[in-house]
């Protein structure tokens, strides 16, 4: 029997993922395609927000959606009705997306000619924050019933996002959600984050969000 050799690797396990993510980001830039990673807890209104965003923007840009779910296609069916390109990824129990899954989604969707693509991540505020998907920017949706203390409970998520949509503001009077306090908590973690209060259901306050997307799409082509 041959002697045992010790090979020192000392490599972060996520390095491989980070490398893949960086490659995806470069490729998207060269294609002029803006990819947004959209994260939230379950039930915060991700799909409703997405549908209303698609309906507003589909006349001015080509849109594609990558839906990720543990094991269903209900969201993809809802998106499909808007007429934009959509693909459903099944993560098979995984609670987050990584760069490899983004790559599979991009290949399956046929992204030629697209301007704006959304990766709808698994509804979860913990795991998706830890894995770079290769998206150009990260956004999250929080809804009024979830409470304003979410930044204190899930700080990692607020470290990685560029924009936060505060959804269901039409339900504000029924819950003790303090928007000023929420804003202060968020900005203590990351002062760069843009906070946009909306009601996706009533199409209220959505204009700054649409403008943010338009700006990102233009920047990606610059």
């Amino acid at each position: 029997m041959s002697a045992i050799r010790v090979i020192e690797i000392k490599k972060g396990i996520y390095e491989q993922n980070d490398k893949k993510a960086e490659e995806i980001r470069k490729e998207l830039k060269s294609k002029g395609l803006f990819l947004l990673n959209l994260m939230s807890s379950p039930g915060s209104g991700k799909t409703t927000t997405l549908v209303s965003t698609i309906n507003q923007l589909k006349g001015e840009m080509e849109i594609g959606i990558i839906e990720a779910d543990i094991d269903s296609d209900v969201d993809a069916r809802t998106i499909d009705k808007t007429g934009v390109k959509v693909i459903q990824l099944h993560t098979g129990g995984m609670c987050h997306l990584d760069a490899e899954m983004t790559r599979q989604g991009i290949e399956a969707l046929d992204v030629e000619g697209l301007d704006f693509m959304v990766l709808e991540n698994i509804g979860n505020l913990v795991c998706p924050a830890g894995f770079d998907t290769g998206a150009t920017k990260n956004a999250m949706i929080i809804s009024i019933p979830e409470g304003h203390d979410k930044p204190l409970k899930y700080p990692a998520m607020f470290k990685v996002v560029d924009v936060v949509l505060v959804n269901k503001i039409d339900a504000m009077e029924y819950f003790d959600f303090d928007l000023d306090l929420f804003t202060a908590y968020v900005h203590k973690i990351n002062p760069e984050i843009q906070i946009i209060p909306i009601s996706a259901k009533n199409a209220q306050g959505m204009e700054p969000w649409f403008d943010w997307i338009r700006e990102q799409v233009a920047q990606q082509k610059a």
Binding site: V6, K10, G12
Partner: peptide, 11 residues
Amino acid sequence: REFILKEIQIS
């Protein structure tokens, strides 16, 4: 927050 593959022992 580390998650590192430190070494492997092979034969």
